[in-house]
Design a protein around this nucleic acid. Sequence first.
DNA 1: AATGGAACTTAACAGCGTTAACTTAACAAT
DNA 2: ATTGTTAAGTTAACGCTGTTAAGTTCCATT
Lengths: 242, 242
Amino acid sequence: MGFSRKMAATKMPVRKPRGEGHTRREEILAAAKALFLEEGVRATTMRRLAERVGVSAPALYLYFKDKDAILIELCDRIFARLLVRMEEIEREPLPACQRLRRMGEAYIRFGLEHPDEYRITFLEATAPEPIRFTGHRTDTSDLSQPGAKGAMVFSKIVEVYEAIAREGIALPHSPVTCAELSFLACHGLVAALISEPDFPWSDRETLIRGMVDVSVRGVLPALDAGLAVACEAATPRTRRRR
Amino acid sequence: MGFSRKMAATKMPVRKPRGEGHTRREEILAAAKALFLEEGVRATTMRRLAERVGVSAPALYLYFKDKDAILIELCDRIFARLLVRMEEIEREPLPACQRLRRMGEAYIRFGLEHPDEYRITFLEATAPEPIRFTGHRTDTSDLSQPGAKGAMVFSKIVEVYEAIAREGIALPHSPVTCAELSFLACHGLVAALISEPDFPWSDRETLIRGMVDVSVRGVLPALDAGLAVACEAATPRTRRRR
DNA sequence: AATGGAACTTAACAGCGTTAACTTAACAAT
DNA sequence: ATTGTTAAGTTAACGCTGTTAAGTTCCATT
């Protein structure tokens, strides 16, 4: 930005007063977010970020362990919003399989709206890769790990499948496995549209609708057997089916 | 590297004779492949690769435009094998929806067997990211672009859906869209298992079977309506489905 | 014997994330 | 008002990355 601090004459103190370190911390996160969608993730280097904040690069390490810590916190804050969205849907008074559809659609749209954050939390290799000795995790106390928020979102889908089971609809697998299948199908759509935006995909809205269908009907064949057509019928469809 | 060539006494020519540059090229690709699965992708730097080949780092640029060119060629060669596998399946004398299942399973297994190459061709951002002006592609002549082999694999699925349609089974979308949905669902499974290997996923085989089911039944609801149960029944199942 | 080009090297650039060592400024207590 | 403490910040540097520029060696052809 360079001459930006000519503008920012209001907040020129440059150095924070004694107990106000957390303010700087927020500034860093805000700057990172801005850099993210202005220049892209690739351009978000520690030096550029520091310059944007108006501080030297090593100063960032007073507030974050390393670069990843900044990205992870950014993503976690974004995904927290998806989580509250999911919880809203969870409370909607609808048949459970209807809520499943709504969650799937909400998930996909959210992912497509936040491609950078989605890529970082779900597409980037989580393990620093020399660590192949990780074995199995006995320590579940580390809740601030990268995928934490993502896992919480996933658990919402599990709960819906449990509700579906309670409604008397037969599941072909355990609720967890069913949730994974629905989730992974939607994930595939988001991941691909994000990673290969130039591929000549079909109409995006068609794909969203279609994948929600697939992720629900594919897992719950009983629905199509005429057992619970209500699930489909209740969805307002702008687009006729065949 | 200096004294490292004390070991490589067998192939000490060090410098290739006149017209044998392509030999070095293959050596580079072989070394890259080896480094890939010995040390991981992250450890595959140009300098390390050059050292492994027994050559200086800039020498690599005599044979490849940049690092990406090496990775892309490696991945394309791997995916060529998936392509022939898909073509084998294409020729199997089965109901089309059966071939669809076989392709889905082959695709998933292939992806899980080549996680590094899969990640590079499908999960890594294809555009160098400053290039936002890409617009739409009028020029389809560039077949050696990153996703080329991947796109050819995809087209095999489209063909199967066209065959399914010819068999008189109603498709809810165009064959291309149907293929995208099936493909994307399987892609989601592969992508997630690769990117989040430490997440406590359900049993892998269960997920593979389950996702093949989802990707076929989710797109072809008519199958479950009793129209073509043959499609499912013909698959030899080692594992009972509760 | 001279030449031209293929095959290669060394040296270096600009950038990256990160650390060590040092400085400055703000407050509390004397 | 001066001090001591320490949070907040700096500059310099390390080791690494991909990549380029310029120069060298060696062989086949003329």
